[in-house]
């Protein structure tokens, strides 16, 4: 299955996190929000100008800018 950066996940789609390429504090922050390898993420909506995007992570709504989201590689669920 092909990996895709989270920022390219279409709105309304769900995917599973496979790789986190962020480092240092950002990596830690993402993981503290419960975003680890294997976590399900749903792209909920985009902001006015297309950035940031709102994601549903473990029941919480978290907005990420595309710079951060692009560091998270996900595998899209096939329906």
């Amino acid at each position: 299955m092909e990996l895709l950066p989270l920022n390219l996940l279409p709105i309304g789609c769900t995917a599973r996190v496979r790789q986190i390429n962020a480092h240092g504090a950002l990596r830690r922050r993402l993981m503290d929000l419960g975003l680890i390898i294997g976590t399900e993420v749903k792209a909920v909506r985009k902001s006015l100008s297309g950035d940031p995007t709102l994601y549903e992570i473990r029941g919480a709504m978290i907005a990420l800018r595309c710079e951060e989201a692009s560091k998270i590689l996900v595998e899209r669920f096939v329906l």
């Binding site: 962020a22 504090a25 950002l26 922050r29 993402l30 929000l33 940031p52 709102l54 919480a60 709504m61 978290i62 907005a63 990420l64 800018r65 710079e67 951060e68």
Partner: peptide
Amino acid sequence: LPSSFVLELPP
């Protein structure tokens, strides 16, 4: 440059 940004939208 802008630093990383993570914002939670509470219910």
